[in-house]
């Protein structure tokens, strides 16, 4: 057993290094001005280049209005928030029903509510583009948010269903017998107990939305940029260790990083919520597939 542990530790350290190290050159690159072949380190940093060129470089460029980062960031956050909120609201009643009731055809409904996760997004996206052209909502925020519901609603249903499964109906009955009316039951019992799942669904919806590329790309028609579509253009046109692409990659990684940190925090501090936080459980179910 001891040797096994030793082996496991080494494998884990190696893997962690393998997945984390590639970010380091990107951090260096984001602050570089000149990083020519075959240098292992940048030969000139952005702060050294300031003033020597008439154009803003590296982060200065990214934060200047020309880069388009500002609007893309705001669009991503706005679309992400709207998508997360809508997806959670839409999924909430369905999750409650799936967790609480048995009915004929339940498995079919569960399957239907999950299947968008495995159906090729290119097929949905192209069909959706035709539909939205008819409805006149391409190139609009409404269109993009609606498009983002397809990958987010299934996950929200999943997360909230397991959350409601933990909420035994006995708690609500118990509260009723203690004198709580329906509103009070909702406020004092249901909401606090479902809150971790609700927050997870919101976070997760935001995360998926902020990572979606293809659907945004198709529906926005290039009129509304988000961080992924902007990154797509940068990669398409940039050089390998280009400073602005590197900087943008780091910015695009922020939502995910925040998500991880928060879910880890919850996992460590389970007591504020009462039971094992849903966050740590749901990451696996989610994020591998699309986005």
């Amino acid at each position: 057993m001891k040797r096994q542990r030793y082996f496991g530790q080494i494998a884990l350290v190696l893997a962690a290094a393998l997945f984390a190290l590639p970010f380091i050159p990107l951090v260096l690159a984001s602050f570089s001005f000149r990083w020519h072949w075959p240098d292992i380190f940048p030969s000139m940093w952005m702060w050294e280049a300031r003033g020597t060129t008439p154009f803003p470089v590296g982060w200065d460029y990214l934060f200047s209005p020309v880069s388009g980062l500002g609007p893309a960031f705001l669009n991503t956050v706005g679309i992400g928030l709207a998508t997360a909120l809508l997806a959670t609201l839409i999924a909430l009643p369905a999750a409650r029903v799936l967790a609480r009731y048995n009915f004929p055809g339940k498995e079919a409904v569960e399957f239907f509510l999950l299947v968008p996760v495995i159906v090729p997004q290119i097929a949905v996206g192209i069909g959706m583009l035709m539909l939205f052209i008819r409805l006149g909502i391409t190139r609009s925020y409404v269109g993009i948010v609606l498009a983002h519901l397809v990958p987010t609603v299934p996950y929200a249903v999943r997360i909230l269903t397991s959350s409601f499964q933990n909420l035994d109906i006995a708690y609500e009955e118990q509260a009723r017998t203690l004198g709580a009316d329906r509103i009070s039951v909702l406020r004092f019992i249901v909401l606090p107990l479902v809150m971790p799942g609700l927050l997870t669904a919101l976070f997760f919806g935001f995360l998926i939305s902020s990572n979606v590329f293809l659907l945004t790309f198709l529906i926005s028609g290039g009129r509304i940029e988000t961080l992924p579509t902007l990154l797509f253009q940068f990669i398409e046109s940039g050089a390998p260790l280009d400073s602005t692409t590197a900087g943008l990659v780091l910015i695009v990684s922020i939502p995910g990083l925040v998500f991880l940190l928060i879910s880890d925090l919850f996992a460590r501090d389970g007591r504020s919520i009462g039971r094992t936080p849903v966050t740590s459980v749901t990451i696996p179910q989610g994020s591998g597939g699309p986005e």
Binding site: A16, F213, V249, V252
Partner: peptide, 21 residues
């Protein structure tokens, strides 16, 4: 595992940029 979980939560495009670099 934090570092191993990190790629999970970033867009595929981030992976593309890393591979290019």
């Amino acid at each position: 595992t934090f570092f191993i979980r990190l790629p999970l939560v970033v867009p595929y495009l981030v992976g593309a940029a890393l591979v290019v670099a």
